[in-house]
């Protein structure tokens, strides 16, 4: 069983959901990212989603776009992010999932990436512009190295398609809560609970929900219907507004704790 699945299983036994915080690697620099990862784990994060910045993040809203730009400005790339994971891996228990658009991964070399990931302990990948139809090559490479590939299901996905995606997805299934881009929102979209209930009937694999989830109230409303809750932009926004590294860690810790308490 993969590290990710093991975490879901352990949590389930305790009757808990997985909190999956997202931050962009290298925003604003890799030292901050390192300290934030420690803070997130200490405050109750169960799985870390670490964003690989890309020049053209077309599934992301303004908050994560801006964080990618900040990271790229400082010369962050996949190689440096993997080196960071290697460095912190012995000190961090959470599974680490990289979120990346396909092109930086493709350029790095898929086999090289998968070999490297296994060696240093990257547990999985979320690739928002790689639908199942195009994913077979990567999936084969990742599977043979024991690395999970988390595919996404959206509100526009039909049941038969969701079934196909669920079968291919490993680790967990990422349910996109709304038709739109990432970004913190005041309210949860209408029909979300019904959609999660429908998806639940299709698959036994863990379902994590993301996009727009930005407060302890949202988490409370969704815990009965999902196995994992992904919070990104709301955290990235705190980092953007922080005065310095220490301030960023304090704010993010406090926020992640409040989310964990709501689980």
């Amino acid at each position: 069983m993969s590290h990710i699945r093991a975490v879901f299983k352990t949590l389930k036994r305790k009757g808990r959901r997985a909190l999956i915080p997202f931050i962009t690697a290298g925003d604003p620099d890799l030292e901050t990212t390192k300290q934030l990862i420690f803070s997130i784990e200490k405050s109750g994060g169960d799985i870390l989603e670490l964003g690989v910045p890309f020049s053209d993040p077309l599934a992301d809203g303004p908050t994560i776009q801006a964080s990618s730009q900040r990271a790229l400005k400082n010369g962050v790339n996949l190689e440096k992010i993997l080196a960071l994971v290697e460095e912190i891996r012995p000190k961090v228990k959470m599974p680490i999932v990289l979120m990346s658009y396909y092109n930086p991964l493709f350029r790095f070399g898929l086999e090289r990436l998968a070999d490297y990931s296994r060696e240093i302990g990257v547990d999985g990948f979320i690739i928002p512009d790689l639908p199942v139809e195009e994913g077979d090559n990567w999936l084969r490479i990742a599977k043979s190295r024991g690395i999970d590939t988390i595919f996404l299901v959206a509100p526009t996905t039909s049941s038969s398609r969701a079934y196909k995606i669920a079968r291919k997805s490993t680790g967990f299934i990422y349910y996109v809560s709304l038709t739109g881009v990432t970004g913190a929102r005041e309210r949860l979209p209408e029909g979300l609970i019904e959609s999660l209930t429908r998806l639940r009937k299709i698959t036994k694999k863990p379902i994590a929900v993301g996009f727009g989830i930005s407060s302890p109230e949202h988490i409370k409303m969704l815990t009965p219907y999902a196995d994992g809750l992904i919070v990104g932009s709301a955290i990235v926004r705190l980092i953007e507004r922080a005065k310095d590294l220490e301030d960023a860690c304090t704010k993010v810790s406090r926020f992640v704790s409040s989310l964990a308490d709501a689980l």
């Binding site: 396909y102 512009d129 639908p131 195009e134 996404l152 398609r161 996109v176």
Partner: peptide
């Protein structure tokens, strides 16, 4: 090919 977010695939 079709390298787009899942939301667009059905469309």
């Amino acid at each position: 090919g079709k390298y787009v977010p899942e939301t667009l695939m059905p469309l």
